[in-house]
Design a protein around this nucleic acid. Structure first.
Lengths: 195, 195
DNA sequence: GGGCTAACCGGACCCTGGTCCGGTTTCTGC
DNA sequence: GCAGAAACCGGACCAGGGTCCGGTTAGCCC
């Protein structure tokens, strides 16, 4: 879970709480390597970490958030890259190039951590589209698209494009349909160009 | 080699089985009217129908399929309409008009039965994208899009467009973002036009 | 009607995500 | 160092989807 003190500073975690969070994350990583993503059940993680289930849920809220915590670093790197990183993903390149690069970077992220990303996406629609990560992506795309197609069309297009970058969707394209990364990237690029 | 019935299992349902299927569907409808979609738990339906849980699962397989059965009629009407119905949804109109009409018809379907449609969509990606209904929609869109943008781009675009017609996605646009049906239709139409 | 088989029935059971609350530990202020 | 409060802990508990299997019943052929 993200810990940015946006308005007022939240009191720091107690020592035992921090210790348990660390133990839980390590346990989850261990289970992940040993049994893959589906081996990560909440019971198993709590047991492996040697704490109770309640502790796990208090620290991470729900299963999706636990998975989010497992890829938080990569996620932050990605956000950093498209907000302040080098062109074409970051500022400086033409908008259409940035949009294309955004998709390609997301494909790469999914290639590397697809299973975790899919599990970290909340199933409940309300949680999903209200999730800070989704909002961040959306805000970025809306900003770029506004320059490209105007502010009237931008918001809807941003959501449609994000649907095309959904981990489950991309994994389906790659693994079920058997598309190569190159084919996927070309499809995305042409989609961007046609807007 | 076992003789495989190519289209459908020819053996009819046993009388008690058919009776129970009917009772279960009626029970589900009753619960739906009384408590809404989330009132339809598998236990509740079985209990309301006066049969065991096992019977419910043998008849419908899983929860999503039960919901699918509840809107099967409307779904069939929709399929009939875009395959053999009057233009512009059916054959006879320009391809771009048919694509536009397809989206608008889907919006209407979601407007009328959004909750049921959302619940009838399998959560598991494998089941979802392999579902007969998804395949039908996809095949239709691929055929239309092939005329519009060529057979190279058509398959990928079909999947992207279907993602934009996902019930949860549309409900999010309507209820969370507060878009009117008209705004949604305009967004879709412009998306089609830009391809 | 009687017997045979396959299909069917029901509900006990399992799994997993998520909640609750009585008891414990850490931190703060004195 | 001590007392009190707030935060935290753990595991029993709950709900809901899905499975299993011993017992039952419908359909069929004699």
């Amino acid at each position: 879970m993200v810990e940015l003190p946006l308005v007022e500073s939240p009191r720091p975690e107690r020592a035992d709480a921090a210790r348990n969070r660390e133990a839980l994350l390590e346990a989850a990583h261990r289970l992940l390597e040993r049994d893959g993503p589906e081996g990560i059940t909440m019971d198993a993680v709590a047991c492996e970490a040697g704490v109770g289930k309640g502790t796990l849920f208090r620290r991470f809220g729900d299963r999706a958030s636990l998975f989010h915590a497992l890829i938080d670093d990569r996620e932050r790197d990605f956000q950093e890259a498209f907000i302040r990183g080098p062109a074409p993903l970051g500022p400086g390149a033409p908008v259409s190039d940035r949009l294309t690069a955004f998709g390609h970077a997301m494909f790469q992220l999914i290639e590397d951590h697809g299973a975790l990303l899919a599990e970290s996406t909340p199933v409940t629609p309300g949680l999903r589209y209200g999730h800070p990560v989704y909002i961040t992506y959306r805000t970025h795309l809306v900003a770029l698209l506004t320059e490209q197609v105007g502010e009237r069309r931008a918001p809807y297009l941003a959501d449609v494009l994000l649907a095309a970058l959904d981990p489950d969707f991309v994994i389906y394209q790659r693994q079920v349909l058997g598309l190569s990364t190159g084919e996927l990237e070309r499809g995305w690029a042409q989609l961007i160009d046609s807007l």
